[in-house]
Design a protein around this nucleic acid. Structure first.
Lengths: 194, 194, 194, 194
DNA sequence: TATGAATGAGGGTTCATTCAT
DNA sequence: AATGAATGAACCCTCATTCAT
């Protein structure tokens, strides 16, 4: 399995660094190869083409990302607590790897439609996690029953994503982890005073 | 003022069409020129460079877009009603111009960081409208006073944006206007049952 | 009609020179452009791609080549005289343009099957000229009636082609024009003494 | 002598197959190695470089080819009969090994000038066989005495080669063996009726 | 103003060959 | 002898921009 070979991960990590530093459109294969400490041709022993590096990067990194969030939302939590954990871990992981945050929030979105479709299919798993929590909340009658599940998912993801993007664009001038609680409150409580 | 010359608008409208039909990366200057019915060189009499076409496109189209939303949120509405109107007009305008929706939601995001920064400064005015409504809501004590205004703005914009993006990617298989009410409810009421 | 523009012919002539001097596989587009005195990109205003340069070169040059041979074989000649003229003009034209001879006899044959098919379709017209002369010879009962026309054409063309190729490979150390008469005699009279 | 080692022949036979099936330009060393059932590096224990595979292939295969023709033209035949045998055996051998015919008639000709020179030196022996027969014919006064021996050789070889090439390009839709008699007649008798 | 022919920099990918094991 | 992972040089083509007319 080539995914377990050290060079595979070397190249992916190099790609994250290079893209974070130079931006998507200035990240030539040769630059990634040099950073990974391999020859240009070696890239093509592990990846079909340049796009495949980016898709693999996303799969590899987001795979772990999502898994950790899934593991953190244990069964003993209430749906609302699970949502909090999801937001907390989301922020936590990205704040621990700023390069990755730049790449996923800003750079990879510059890719063409085809690549974005593949990226979306990776994200699908994350959205499924959200869907499950929402479903559970409705079942347990803590969330309103007359909500459109898909819209809720879009609100949750859209909110988290926008918050993270703003943080990344502000070049991490503040600690995003401090915002988990408030974001969670906004999402579950809404704006209205009671 | 060149902005009033007919060719200026011709070129921008051609750009919207060409980008919507061909995608960002297949929208060469020469293609836009041909669609606008002018020579390649003529483009450069009205725009500094290719990026300037896109920034101008965004300014021109989003300027109107925002203005209409501002006009619709009259002083006789409550803050919550204003938010509803904002969402309603946002959806309404994009559903009336699908090409523009594709361009702003999908294609223009493939541009580089620099262009996106300029786009963001155009969006600033839209965000200001949101901020004002939120501020008013707090002042009038209908919105909770202990919220982070910036986060609220990010939630509102992030939610709307995500909902629209999903609609565009589904190739308008449903009517997004029907969702304004629910999106508004989610944002102001939150998830929790009372 | 781009074929009449001066740069079209400039580029083709440059291609003949560059290929004759450097060989097919060392004839980069940029080398041809430089020799033609144009930018690399200009090539692509006149030709679809590199292969198109070579096909066009062959069409352009062989078109004239064949036309001259057709014009020289006038109706007042006997079939045998026509064959002589064909051979004579074939040798004459190539000996007047050694570069072209190198390109058509040696270099262009290194192209891939696809290109060779296109080249063959150009040669078709030349083979038609041979066929007609043979047909006429049989009709007028000066050539044997029991011959296979296609084989005769292959003998005539194969012989001429082999003679020319040998001459080109010997780097024109002798005058090929002196061989027209003998080649003609061999073809029409055969080897046998009578 | 490495030529006697089984892998030497394995690799050459693999090269013939791979080139016949994929064409010269799609016949990578690694493809030949895989077909031969050896590692890429092993190729270089038996051949200096890729070109050396092709030259060796030609030497090995054409060596046998020529030898069989020499053996078939026994001393009891007349010069004309010998020519017939030469043509007959030429056609026979190629029609028995279509792969080899494709490789020698079409694919190997796409090689560069240098390789073709080496190939020509292998062909030299074949041309010598022709020369001898012609010489004998003149000596025995059955062939015309005033012919240019070199031109005759070029006519004979050029004709045979062209006939074979046409047959190969027509993808053996007819039996080339049936043409030996006619080709022989054309070469020795010429076109003219008597 | 308007034209459009001409420019030329820039990069993903292949594949013959090497060499440590 | 045999392996096969690694190397890195080499090239066609696109397209934003210019400028003579």
């Amino acid at each position: 399995m080539k995914h377990d070979k050290p060079k595979y991960k070397q190249i992916i990590d190099a790609a994250v660094e290079v893209i974070a530093e130079n931006g998507y459109h200035s990240s030539q294969v040769s630059k990634i190869a040099k950073r990974a400490g391999v020859a240009d041709g070696t890239i093509y022993l592990y990846f079909k083409n340049k796009e495949d590096i980016l898709v693999s990067l996303f799969q590899e990194k987001m795979g772990q990302f999502i898994e950790r969030i899934q593991n953190a939302t244990t069964s003993r939590q209430t749906p609302s607590e699970k949502l909090f954990t999801l937001i907390e871990k989301h922020f936590e992981q990205l704040s621990e790897d700023y390069h990755l945050a730049v790449v996923t929030q800003l750079e990879l979105r510059q890719s063409n439609k085809e690549l974005r479709l593949k990226i979306n299919s990776v994200l699908k798993k994350y959205l499924d996690v959200i869907d499950e929590i929402v479903e559970e909340g409705i079942r347990e009658e803590v969330f309103r029953e007359n909500i459109n599940r898909k819209l809720v998912r879009q609100m949750i993801f859209g909110t988290i994503d926008e918050v993270v993007t703003n943080w990344v664009m502000k070049e991490q001038h503040y600690d995003i982890n401090n915002q988990a609680k408030e974001v969670h409150a906004l999402v579950v409580e809404g704006l209205l005073k009671r």
